[in-house]
Nucleic acid binder design. Structure first.
Lengths: 236, 236
DNA sequence: AAAACTATCTATAACTA
DNA sequence: TTAGTTATAGATAGTTT
């Protein structure tokens, strides 16, 4: 498709292969997206690039999950021929879009709060945040603490068991379907360690993060194929 | 990509949609296959067409199964990091995030203003907008006018030349990479037609838009493969 | 309805900064 | 390297068979 026709075979030159991959991945994702829009088909794509540790997916993690589940559970769907006609179809589309909009708003908020949390870890002060942001931030910290404690417990109980170590760590760190409860407030009490309260009162001083090998930013884990990093919120 | 550029939206005509689906499915599968061959990546695609009761897959059932299993088993990939030492890692991540944040802010703003512009064309009043929004709105209108005038000129100069008519019309209508200049203010004077000023002064009265067959909202044309509908802005 | 055709539109290989 | 540009191969919308 360009200056010259290339032969359809593995590209041996490393940098050239990478460049080609990045270009073609973009084009491919666009094509999947277009087909999905134009023809209203449920679709997904998964690419295991050697360039990221997460696979590249379309449309996103939960979308892939949905399609994959559908794929594994296939047999029963037969009767959906006789497709409904236009008006009901459009109404259904609209409802679906509205539902996705709401879901997206929650997702965006969650990403924002996550980002804020890591900004705080990097030294951002809490002074000029509004109450809602502080609440949600607390919620997210609590969730993470819960997950961490759960993990610690499981490691204590079965220090060497293989099966356990492959379970995912942050049950609520990423996006979870049907489980959005921002701002629910403390329906149960979480024990915050002493350093947490100290840090709350002196947010701008570094409290010793950044030494352990386990420290990791969450962005690698987020579904990252939408290109959107910022979704509106507490940023100016 | 053929005789005419189509609008990126659900194709309502049934037979046309089916024809498009079949053509594009073929193209898509070819693309996946090529990417896989050229770059040696493990990949799969799943399409749920309403035209078959089995989904269309690439490369084949077992291939999809393998990739999907890999995908579902992913979270354990977390530990193989041996991350670069935390402080520089975090700094790097932060800088990258900040850069992308800024870029995204500009993009979002541009989308918002574009949306606002079309809302205005559909009859929304300008009363309760803030000065910044009005400024940007004016900027965008100016850009579009510029493009239109440029197009008119080129048509005047070469009324029947084929080559010219295939150039794209709105050089700045969508998002342009590396060319964000919101709020730069008028670095050159644009002639606004009389109706524009009238409309500015009586914004809530319909000025004749919304009758013609050609009037169209831009949302269908926007690059919409990110799944994000809401981007924050002047909407409540 | 499906296959062929072809004029255009898009994707992208090579090039450039 | 990564980002942007350009020329050309490839995909495909509308049309014809």
């Amino acid at each position: 498709m360009a200056r010259k026709k290339i032969k359809l075979a593995f590209i041996t030159n490393d940098s050239q292969r990478k460049a080609t991959f990045k270009k073609r991945r973009k084009g491919l994702m666009k094509k999947v997206s277009e087909l999905s829009t134009l023809c209203g088909v449920d679709s997904c794509a998964i690419l295991y690039s050697p360039y990221e540790n997460q696979p590249d997916v379309w449309p996103n993690h939960s979308g892939v999950h949905r399609v994959v589940e559908q794929y594994r559970r296939m047999p029963e769907m037969e009767q959906n021929k006789k497709m409904m006609n236009n008006e009901s179809f459009i109404r259904q589309r609209t409802m679906k879009a509205n539902y996705q909009l709401k879901k997206q708003l929650v997702e965006n908020r969650e990403k924002d709060v996550n980002m804020l949390m890591y900004q705080c870890l990097a030294g951002r002060g809490l002074q000029n945040l509004m109450m809602a942001d502080l609440n949600d931030l607390g919620w997210m910290v609590d969730q993470n603490l819960k997950d961490i404690n759960k993990r610690i417990d499981s490691l204590k109980k079965a220090p060497m068991e293989q099966g356990e170590s492959s379970k995912r760590v942050h049950e609520n760190a990423g996006l979870q379907e049907g489980k959005h409860g921002m701002n629910l407030g403390g329906d149960e009490v979480i024990h915050r360690p002493q350093w947490f309260n100290e840090w709350m009162n002196a947010p701008s001083e570094q409290m010793g993060f950044g030494h352990g090998d386990e420290v990791m930013m969450p962005f690698n884990n987020a579904n990252n194929n939408d290109g959107n990093i910022f979704h509106g919120g507490f940023f100016p």
